[in-house]
Design a protein around this nucleic acid. Structure first.
Lengths: 333, 333
DNA sequence: TTGTACGCGTTATCAA
DNA sequence: TTGATAACGCGTACAA
């Protein structure tokens, strides 16, 4: 069942069938109807491979993410896919894990599939050393690269980021204003957004005339019980803190559990602020105050930017979106 | 940059280049090396569209799910994508929502993309009325349809399901054995797995000589606070229950919050059992006993079955996987 | 072991 | 407004 069959049955040439197919106006209404009827009768569907070969595109975008089951990324993928589909693009998903070699391998794989663009979802795709990002900047000469919540400078590379620095700065400032003086910061990694969050935290302290101190800045795996255990251990060592901020809600959940286990009252003795405003922040008692990183806005902006790139419109290479602090019951300001 | 360029530079025919490309043994070692070197020098990558046109496949599988940000489905998508990629297949993701028309529309869309198979992830794709599933059974004559945690009878349709009935039956039986007599069941929908869970619950009661009673079987939106509010209201109306089982962990989280809000002690006064063993079940204090529906096993089995179908091996049209009860702190048996 | 020639199903150019 | 025909880049009989 192909365009020849249709043309034969309709008594026209394949060129006319193709024109009907693509809404070309240079077809008489009579012919158009005749062809459409034949298509319908025969149940004809154009072959996307042949079309792809001719046009050198299959309207497909590659989405890379480290782990699509992470609540934050799962949300991002959802919004990205819906956005792409509303513009008639397909999404090829690719979960890479965290290893640089693997990320690079999958990136090349997607390129070899001739996707029209690659979206890197999450802040785990920008490495500290510039040479480790060369594979991205080089590829950008051939197809647009979109970063969701990550920033990389380069031609044909577009970043949409959440203002993590401002978010952390603002939230930490509110804690300080409310009288908290020993704010422990728990982070998972030194990714693009990880660094920004940390700097926001530090800058808030400095603006308040306080020096950030290393013992209050701790790295921790992105895991509820790891966070809990770490805090229990720090508490046991005599470390004092009256507030905890985290780079991810899961660590904040761990903090709540630590407080429960240690008989520490929230928010009186301990304030907690999570990050991402994910469903996790609504699971605990008390519910967790969390910074909303605006995944949906991030993703729709990314898609809009990409469509702008495709249509040759001038688009910003970097868009920043403001985050919100969602106040719940682990803070009392 | 195509196969002709390579053949020219290497001084061989395109047939030979193609043979090298596809690992055909009928090429002298010398020629092979020469061709490979040219490919490398020229940075040649075969055009997947052209290949797809000739072979009528692009090694791509469509994955449909209602909502990829749901923790359970997000996990499923992760395992499915990884499994497919390990077999050199790409995954096109398609989030459909819950509307039948939309599901049907996207299904046809994927078919028109000529994917090699369609995976329906989650139990939301099998409708009660057989005629509403006709679009699936009919399509199955042209490509394999894989159901993850849903069952549909038909040629070329393969289902991998978790034994929800047995899981609910077993868990409810343990509650009964532990002395619980008023087990409230909270469910979200009458999907394939939803019905099985409900029957498992009822059958456990019957096996214990008790009649299931309607006032203890309640429908509730899949939402933490909706579950909490519902229980607060039922409690207010004087409904008595000493255990709650739910069809999803989110409802179990809501149940924990209800108990906290109402000063009811867990597990002494109230036992709670969730479903899916998702991260949500580890967020609360106490952590929630939950039925592990074995997403990973479900997904890898689905992929293995699909690969079996592709290679013409005889595979079961239905595979059942046993679930586990993960005991945590909301039960005391 | 290697090469020639055709088919795959479109889109697009050009002529009618 | 329509039609003939050449790309698009690959796989693969079949021939050599």
């Amino acid at each position: 069942m192909n365009i020849y069959d249709v043309s034969e049955h309709a008594g026209v040439s394949i060129a006319t069938v193709s024109r009907v197919l693509n809404g070309n106006p240079n077809v008489s209404e009579k012919t158009r109807e005749k062809v459409l009827k034949v298509m319908d009768d025969l149940g004809y569907t154009p072959n996307v491979f042949a079309r792809g070969l001719g046009l050198n595109t299959m309207q497909t975008i590659g989405i890379m993410c480290s782990d699509s089951s992470d609540p934050y990324l799962a949300g991002a993928i959802y919004y990205l896919e819906r956005g792409l589909r509303s513009h008639n693009y397909d999404a090829i998903l690719c979960c890479t894990g965290y290893d640089l070699d693997a990320k690079q391998k999958y990136f090349e794989l997607l390129r070899s599939k001739r996707v029209d663009a690659i979206i890197l979802a999450g802040s785990k795709f920008v490495e500290m050393r510039p040479k480790d990002n060369a594979y991205i900047t080089e590829a950008a000469s051939e197809l647009p690269i979109m970063l969701v919540n990550g920033y990389l400078e380069g031609d044909n590379i577009y970043s949409t980021v959440c203002d993590d620095h401002a978010a952390m700065y603002g939230a930490a400032s509110q804690l300080l204003k409310a009288g908290r003086r020993r704010i422990l910061y728990l982070y998972t990694s030194y990714s693009y957004s990880g660094v920004n969050k940390l700097e926001g935290y530090k800058d808030a302290l400095k603006a308040y005339g306080m020096a950030p101190c290393d013992e209050l800045i701790r790295q921790c795996p992105k895991d509820i019980s790891a966070a809990k255990e770490l805090l229990v251990s720090l508490h046991g060592q005599g470390l004092e803190f009256d507030a905890v901020m985290t780079s991810d809600d899961s660590l904040a959940v761990g903090t709540v559990k630590y407080a429960h286990a240690s008989g520490i009252s929230i928010p009186d003795e301990l304030n907690i602020i999570g990050y991402n405003n994910s469903i996790l922040s609504q699971c605990t008692d008390p519910e967790i105050t969390s910074i909303d990183s605006k995944v949906e806005a991030l993703c729709t902006t990314t898609i809009n930017t990409l469509m702008g790139v495709f249509s040759g419109v001038n688009v910003p290479s970097r868009t920043t979106i403001a985050s919100d602090l969602i106040k719940r019951k682990t803070t009392n300001f």
